[in-house]
Simulated scan of single mutants.
Amino acid sequence: MAFDSETEALLDELDKLAPAGYMVGLHIRLAQPRIYHSSYPPDWVTRYNERSYYLRDPAVFWGISHTGVTRWSAIRLPDPFGLFDEAGRFGLCFGASASAGPMSSRSIIGIAHAEREFSDEELAALARITQALHAHHEECLSLTPAQAEALRLLASGDRHTAAAARLGISESAFKARLKSARLRLEARTTSEAIRKAREHRLI
Rank of each mutant, 00 (worst) to 15 (best):
Ile194Asp: 06
Phe3Glu: 04
Gly91Arg: 00
Gly68His: 05
Glu115Ile: 12
His134Asn: 08
Arg116Ala: 14
Ala148Thr: 03
Ile35Gly: 14
Phe174Trp: 02
Ile194Asn: 02
Arg29His: 08
Ser170Asn: 01
Leu183Cys: 02
Glu149Tyr: 01
Ala146Ile: 00
Ala164Val: 07
Asp158Arg: 12
Ala112Arg: 08
Thr67Asn: 11
Trp62His: 06
Val45Ser: 13
Ser73Ala: 05
Ile28Asp: 10
Asp120Ser: 09
Leu126Lys: 08
Val24His: 10
Ser107Val: 04
Arg89Tyr: 03
Glu171Gln: 11
Ser191Ala: 15
Glu13Pro: 01
Leu183Arg: 13
Gln32Met: 13
Phe94Arg: 02
Pro102Ile: 00
Ser65Arg: 00
Lys179Ile: 03
Glu199Gly: 10
Ile109Glu: 09
Leu126Tyr: 08
Ile64His: 06
Leu167Gly: 09
Arg51Asn: 14
Arg201Gly: 10
Asp85Val: 00
Gly63Asp: 04
Ser156Tyr: 01
Lys175Glu: 09
Leu126Asp: 04
Ala162Gln: 05
Ser180Asn: 12
Leu17Thr: 05
Ile64Val: 15
Pro19Phe: 01
Arg29Gln: 15
Leu123Asp: 03
Lys196Cys: 04
Val69Arg: 06
Arg195Trp: 06
Phe84Met: 11
Leu178Ala: 14
Leu202Gly: 12
Trp44Lys: 05
Arg71Asn: 04
Leu154Pro: 11
Leu133Ile: 04
Glu138Tyr: 02
Ser52Leu: 12
Ala163Asp: 07
Leu11Ser: 13
Ser105Glu: 14
Gly95Ser: 11
Ala114Phe: 02
Arg128Val: 10
Ala98Tyr: 08
Ser119Asp: 06
Glu115Lys: 07
Trp44Asp: 05
Ile129Ala: 08
Asp79Ile: 05
Asp12Lys: 12
